[in-house]
Design a protein around this nucleic acid. Structure first.
Lengths: 193, 193
DNA sequence: GTCTATAACGAGATAGAC
DNA sequence: GTCTATCTCGTTATAGAC
């Protein structure tokens, strides 16, 4: 396995810092000391903190998109796809992180414009993907939707984000899993009135 | 109506700043300029930012607790109490704020110990109150719980926090309301399988 | 209780050598 | 591509006059 290049290592460290401490909770000095290079070197790769922030979101969103494509390619049925979607969030919690875009959603007001736009796109894409899965499940009879697919999709995103947000300070992985299971259980055929 | 004293005005401004920008997203200078006093004066009332942070959470939690007591005192049935609980969150969103403790949950890793403990207490109290309402509703037949009361209580807190978190950047009040309605609808008698 | 003045530090950022 | 050195600014915080 080849060594990772410097921009990648910077992004790895910065991404983890944003997901654990927030965009306003870390500095170039934090990355610098962990990576073992000077702050000036960081500016060579990413002109400023705003550009670094954009790059972090873009890479995260790309990886997320690729993961969703993998799930689609697996050919699994809709309920299984939803479980795999929730599993992405569970993996984030196991690393004791917050969802990158959930963290940035909290700090939204303080962020530069390009970062804001990337955050909104992330949520829009997640919901679009989920809505398609939900519609397919409804049409094939593997899911029962109590409401419109796009609203059910939003409720799933909201529930997973909130479960992550609250579970992390409480150090309660089980809490996340219980909430996630409830979110999906209400879409099982036979669960609705 | 009497003028508010200085500590109260400081807390009002600081609370709003934390709820909109986060604890790491505002400074004494922000409060100073809005209140029209110097930064030094703020230190007379609150020794440091950590003490101010504690005071903000304590006052917020006291007010929240008082509101829950009001709801209890109203004598309303369990479903109505849940709606009033969700309405607290809706009011926060209408002011374009995040739940104070939801915001601080995101920043948890960077906060001083006393603030962390106050945040955990807040969530514990919310869940205890909700669990009692849920149990009463189940016993009186006005609610149907798909799972243990304490887990259902957590799912409600998680769902409302997440709905607030995501709805605010998207500027989508309807989104919050739709998710909140779904959270409560699944507890209606006849909704379960 | 509020002020002026300032200390002490860390932040993001840049110039220019190597 | 990384370094040293430096800059400028904002941050929390304190001393001491009024």
């Amino acid at each position: 396995m080849a060594e990772q290049d410097t921009p990648t290592r910077i992004l790895d460290i910065a991404e983890r810092l944003v997901q654990t401490r927030g965009y306003n909770g870390f500095s170039y000095a934090d990355i610098s000391s962990e990576l073992g290079v000077t702050k000036a070197s960081l500016h060579y790769h990413f002109a400023g903190k705003a550009e670094l922030g954009e790059a972090i979101i873009e890479r995260y969103a790309d990886r997320f998109r690729a993961r969703l494509a993998e799930i689609d390619a697996s050919g699994a049925d809709a309920p299984t796809r939803l479980e795999e979607y929730a599993e992405i969030y569970a993996g984030v919690l196991r690393e004791q992180r917050m969802c990158l875009c959930g963290m940035l959603a909290a700090e939204y007001e303080t962020l530069p414009g390009p970062m804001r736009e990337a955050i909104v796109r992330f949520f829009d894409e997640s919901e679009t993907w989920l809505a398609h899965v939900l519609e397919e499940g409804r049409d094939s009879g593997s899911l029962s939707l109590p409401g419109p697919a796009n609203e059910e999709a939003r409720a799933i995103v909201d529930g997973l984000e909130g479960a992550l947000l609250v579970a992390r300070p409480l150090g309660d992985v089980h809490r996340f899993e219980a909430t996630a299971a409830r979110l999906l259980a209400r879409l099982s055929p036979g669960a609705a009135a």
